[in-house]
């Protein structure tokens, strides 16, 4: 959790694009504290990217205020850009440059001296294990390579606040894990405040301290994953794999959600857990897993 100092204070923010049927986001209010790892979840078009663009000062809100360390983000763009590093969702801006050039140039444009920019570039290339694409032009990179380069560019200036729009998209599992490890390290060891949008709720759950869930432009839930889960925690998920050919009768208090080729997913009330283990013939069950709600299930519950 953050250290109590408010980094972002978002109050009653609404953004409406000309000609759009509904507001991109409406009456959004929440705060983010120094050192927090804050996740934003929501389906496509829920208004997440618009909101973080407002937070970076790239979009003007129709109403409400967004304050960064107490200052309106639009009042002093240099104040904002010297504290917030933003990784956009879409393709890369410095496509004509190689990876090494793009990282160095961004560091320099963010005010780092030449020597420091080179040192930070080399350290990041090593940390992100992208030495093989060091001299590769960004426009010739695969989606995953470009994503890593975007991340390196966002991290190079070592600013207090990182805002990342889907940083693990298009990455393979090993690189996704590396990125989550790196973000956790930056948050825990260096105290960077991280705000990120992701669709990967299961992976994000390992690092996110607080989460905001957007639906159709509204902030429908905000809190620690455990708090949000506790609101839905009247049931637990049961995952069973039955022996082939077994047509086991399942207890009638199990709410079966899916059953296919011996694999069963069901919900069980917390009060029925004890008798479930007694009622099931565990010799006929290859796998029996009882699980509390995941962040993904919380997201499905609130976000859809």
């Amino acid at each position: 959790m953050g250290d109590g100092q408010v980094v972002y204070e978002i109050s009653g923010v609404t953004k409406r694009f000309a000609g759009a049927e509904r507001a991109a986001n409406e009456d959004i209010s929440f705060t983010i504290e120094q050192g927090e790892f804050f996740g934003m979840l929501g389906s496509n078009g829920a208004g997440k990217t618009t909101l973080i663009k407002q937070m970076v000062g790239l979009l003007k809100s129709n109403s409400g205020t967004i304050r960064l360390y107490g200052k309106d983000v639009l009042a002093d763009p240099v104040f904002t850009s010297m504290r917030v590093s933003y990784m956009p969702q879409t393709a890369f801006a410095l496509n004509s440059l190689t990876a090494a050039e793009a990282i160095y140039v961004t560091a320099h444009l963010r005010g780092l001296g030449r020597g420091e920019a080179r040192r930070r570039r080399d350290a990041l290339i090593e940390r992100l294990d992208i030495g093989a694409m060091r001299n590769k032009a960004a426009r010739r990179m695969s989606g995953g390579e470009r994503r890593l380069l975007q991340l390196a560019v966002a991290l190079v200036a070592d600013l207090p606040v990182l805002i990342l729009d889907e940083p693990t998209n298009e990455l393979d599992p090993a690189r996704r894990r590396m990125v989550w490890d790196l973000l956790r390290e930056l948050n825990h060891e260096q105290g960077q405040t991280i705000v990120l949008i992701t669709h990967n709720a299961l992976e994000a759950e390992q690092v996110i301290e607080r989460v905001g869930i957007l639906r159709e432009g509204g902030l429908v839930a905000v809190g620690r994953p455990a708090e949000l889960k506790s609101g839905l925690a009247k049931t637990l998920s049961v995952h069973l794999t039955l022996r082939e050919g077994m047509a086991a009768e399942l207890p009638d208090y199990l709410l079966v959600q899916s059953r296919h080729r011996g694999k069963v997913v069901a919900q069980v009330s917390r009060t029925d857990v004890a008798r479930l283990t007694a009622d099931l013939d565990l010799d006929e069950v290859l796998e029996f897993r009882l699980q509390s709600k995941t962040l993904e299930e919380v997201y499905f519950e609130y976000g859809n």
């Binding site: 140039v105 444009l109 005010g111 200036a157 600013l159 606040v161």
Partner: peptide, 22 residues
């Protein structure tokens, strides 16, 4: 690592150097 309220020591690149880099 800076925390923002104290202000970070770094300054933006002067205009002419930003023009040259861009």
């Amino acid at each position: 690592m800076s925390t923002g309220t104290e202000g970070i020591e770094r300054k933006p690149l002067p205009f002419h150097r930003a023009v040259w880099t861009l």
